[in-house]
């Protein structure tokens, strides 16, 4: 029991994923600044932001709306992200604790943060937050099927092994999945899915700063907003880690393998940051069409190619 709690709260769960996620959040902001020829924030900026919100700022509860739900939603979201992160990172770091959820567990745990954003936004009683929540809902409806097809294709590629550790092992034996044509298509689909899951431009309709002034999170302040931030840091680490584990043969943590592992994660985050910096926000209608027609089509093509073992 103690070991499981250690894995959940310290390594590779809450604490570890939070710290790495914070550093990746800095990387994201720094690259954004460099793209715009700015200097960008200092290395520890995400941690200053987090600690300021956690320790200094007052937490305001909405006068109208359901206060308990408003407070519980971010906590649930954080635990969902941490649980998903633990299940993704344990096989990646080659730690065996006896229980291994299959990839469907990861899939369902990964939807929890977005769902809690919706619940929290609706509980705040703010009209802008509910517009944000309804957009988030539409976005989930559009990308979730694509994400499921992505998982299905990966499982199919791994000879229908459902466990993440087996998927990684398969790649260790027969080369990373991304080296095939279907793997490349799946990588494209996967990157756009996690982009939408992170709520990064072009899929940031739910918190559109300029029109909804932070949308779903408009009423959050102080400690609870710090938890929302932490959830996002963790997601920024575990989603690229998932993609690396599924397609780019995971991590090999011996010798120079550590450097490769870091480079793989940074490459995926860099790609996401560049997509975010070179695209405008889509209308929610366009985002839905993009996933329902474009990305689903691509995922289905990838599945067919996998059957033909291409």
């Amino acid at each position: 029991m103690g070991e499981i709690l250690y894995h959940f709260f310290v390594y590779p769960g809450l604490l570890f994923a939070g710290v790495i996620g914070g550093l990746l959040a800095w990387f994201d902001r720094k690259v954004t600044a460099q793209v715009q020829f700015r200097k960008g924030p200092p290395l520890l900026q995400p941690f200053y932001d987090f600690l300021k919100l956690l320790l200094v700022k007052e937490t305001i509860l909405p006068a109208r709306g359901s206060r308990a739900t408003f407070l519980i939603a971010p906590i649930l979201g954080l635990f969902g992200a941490t649980a998903a992160g633990t299940f993704i990172l344990l096989p990646l770091f080659n730690i065996n604790i006896g229980f291994e959820g299959d990839v469907m567990v990861i899939f369902y745990l990964l939807t929890i943060p977005s769902l809690t954003y919706i619940i929290g936004a609706l509980a705040s009683g703010n009209p802008l937050a509910s517009v944000g929540a309804s957009r988030e809902m539409k976005l989930i409806i559009s990308y979730e099927l694509t994400f499921l097809l992505f998982f299905a294709a990966i499982v199919l590629k791994a000879d229908q092994h459902m466990q993440m550790s087996q998927i990684i092992q398969m790649q260790a034996q027969s080369g990373p999945f991304i080296s095939s044509l279907s793997g490349v298509l799946l990588f494209i689909v996967g990157v756009f899915c996690i982009q939408a899951k992170m709520g990064m431009v072009p899929f940031d309709q739910a918190e559109a700063e300029t029109e909804l002034s932070e949308g779903s999170f408009i009423e959050y302040s102080g400690t609870v907003y710090a938890l929302v931030k932490l959830t996002r840091y963790i997601m920024l680490f575990i989603l690229p880690a998932l993609l690396v584990g599924f397609l780019i043969s995971g991590f090999n943590l011996s010798g120079t393998g550590i450097i490769w592992a870091i480079l793989k994660i940074l490459a995926v985050v860099l790609l996401m940051t560049l997509i975010r910096n070179t695209n405008p926000r889509l209308k929610i209608k366009q985002a839905m069409r993009f996933f329902l027609i474009g990305m689903n089509g691509l995922a289905i093509v990838a599945i067919i190619l996998t059957y033909l073992s291409l």
């Binding site: 700015r38 200097k39 305001i60 909804l212 408009i218 959050y220």
Partner: peptide, 22 residues
């Protein structure tokens, strides 16, 4: 916020909601 002056160096950010404001 432009490249020449860039206040993000100091960790400043423009936010859209007074709930997040310092």
């Amino acid at each position: 916020l432009t490249p020449r002056y860039d206040v993000e160096r100091f960790g400043m950010q423009l936010v859209g909601s007074p709930r997040h404001a310092d």
